[in-house]
Amino acid sequence: MSTAARKKLPIGIQTFSDIREGGYYYVDKTSVIHRLVEEGKYYFLSRPRRFGKSLLLDTLRCLFEGREALFEGLDIHDKWDWQVQHPVIRLSFADGVLTSREALDRHIEELLRAEKERLQLSLQNTSIAGQYRELIQQAHEKYGQRVVVLIDEYDKPILDNLLEPGAPASCARG
Results as ranks from 00 to 15, higher is better:
V37A: 10
E38Q: 13
K41L: 12
Y43S: 07
Y43M: 05
F44K: 04
F44C: 12
L45M: 13
P48V: 02
R49D: 02
R50C: 04
R50I: 11
S54H: 04
L56D: 00
D58E: 11
T59R: 00
T59P: 00
R61V: 00
C62L: 01
F64Q: 01
R67N: 13
A69E: 15
E72I: 10
G73F: 05
G73E: 05
H77W: 10
H77T: 01
K79I: 02
D81Y: 12
D81A: 07
W82D: 11
V84G: 01
H86D: 04
H86R: 12
P87D: 08
R90P: 00
R90I: 01
L91M: 13
L91V: 14
A94K: 15
L98I: 13
L104S: 06
D105T: 13
E109P: 02
E110T: 10
E110I: 01
E110C: 09
L112E: 00
L112K: 00
A114D: 14
A114F: 07
E115N: 14
K116N: 09
K116G: 05
E117Y: 02
L119Q: 06
L119T: 07
L119K: 05
L119Y: 06
L121Y: 02
S122E: 15
S127M: 08
I128K: 06
A129F: 09
G130R: 11
Y132L: 12
Y132C: 11
R133Q: 13
L135M: 10
L135H: 04
Q138K: 15
H140E: 13
Y143C: 06
G144F: 10
R146N: 11
V149I: 15
V149A: 07
